[in-house]
Write a protein that binds this DNA or RNA. Structure first.
Lengths: 210, 210
DNA sequence: GCAAAGACAGACAGATCTGTCTATATCGCC
DNA sequence: GGCGATATAGACAGATCTGTCTGTCTTTGC
């Protein structure tokens, strides 16, 4: 919870108006996301955030700690966006799920879009890496997303809810990967439609909903 | 075409029976896939492949060249598997598409499975990296997959084939990401079913096929 | 059996990485 | 206005990275 507050306003303020810790985190976040974690050294983060090395190590005891903090930040922002989108009042249960794809459309069109930080994290810090903090953060993200989708699928009372959860999750992650690889403007809409068909098709095989 | 031949038998022979070039490539391939490219240094590849440093640099002028070769290898093996699966005689056009998900089920269950090398490649060598060979190989992979799926969708004569291609591609990539993140044994089957529903649902909206 | 080509072992250079340390400057607060 | 906390600048250590170079050994073809 302090986790969320500490990142407040990170997106809007100019860099030099931020306190050192936030300046470091924002700089690192941008660089890690654009170039990958292993491609960006501490020295570069320090130089671009205009901070002294000792200041950096006072706030972040190690690079791994900074990476974990970066991922927690991305996770918090992303889940907040998802919850805003899916919890809008007046939506049916089905519309809440489809709202995820509507929320993806904007990011997909941004030139700064570089895919999912956690898929990238999995690529750089797989199961054999020795950075438990980082891996735990990545695992928590995927688990959190699964729980969110499961909570949205449950009110539909589908005959095989866990299958629908897998399908929706695959569509979400797949569309993010494809957006990164191809930048097709139809992506979000096509996958929204796919999700709709899946839900309605599953409903057809025998269950009440609303 | 020489590209494919040069990797022949790389998967089966014991390491020390291979010629130096193949030994290097197999060692690098395993290490890159398990630990990520940036986490594995040339020295480690040389040590584990039991080769001299000069021998390495004779066969691969740089690490980037080795990485590109590694990705071309993975691409060739993967497309060969896909073509074997989808071109089986006696399959309908729809079954050819679903055969992709059947082909994925085996790899998903392998403990050595670590996701898609090209998604991981995109994570480590994004658009701002200065390794054109590597990036071109990654781009070619995604383009090749798109073309393969498009060629399988086309005979279905769907009303919106490009939309179906996007949806199928997203399901494929999404299931690969999810398999890496969660290892749910239902993944391939659930997404196969999703693809089937999508195709049949799209057909329903007005077109002949077979 | 011998010459030529290729592989081996390992030192070396130069860059870069994470993390530590010292010494100086600046800022907030009473 | 002065004090304590915090930030700055930058040298430094030790490890590790890619790529080069020098020799010696092994294999292979004739």
């Amino acid at each position: 919870m302090a986790e969320v507050v500490e990142f407040a306003d990170l997106e809007v303020l100019p860099l030099d108006a931020l306190a050192p810790r936030e300046r470091i985190l924002k700089t690192a976040s941008d660089l890690f996301y654009r170039f990958s974690v292993h491609s960006v050294g501490i020295d570069r983060i320090i130089a671009e955030s205009g901070v002294a090395k000792m200041t950096f190590y006072k706030h972040f005891p190690s690079k791994a700690n900074l990476v974990a903090t970066y991922l927690r930040h991305k996770s918090a922002v992303w889940f907040q966006m998802l919850e805003t989108a899916t919890q809008q009042p007046g939506l049916t249960a089905q519309e809440r799920i489809l709202a995820i794809f509507d929320a993806l459309d904007g990011p997909f069109r941004s030139p700064a879009f570089r895919g999912c930080p956690f898929v990238k994290g999995l690529a750089e810090f797989g199961p054999e890496a020795d950075t438990p903090d980082v891996q735990a953060t990545i695992t928590a993200y995927f688990e959190g997303l699964r729980e969110l989708v499961a909570s949205l699928v449950e009110p539909l009372a589908l005959p095989k809810p866990e299958r629908a959860v897998i399908q929706i999750l695959s569509l979400i992650q797949g569309s993010i990967v494809m957006a990164q690889a191809s930048r097709d403007p139809l992506l979000a809409e096509a996958n929204r439609e796919a999700a709709r068909l899946l839900i309605e098709g599953a409903v057809g095989t025998g269950a009440s909903h609303r």
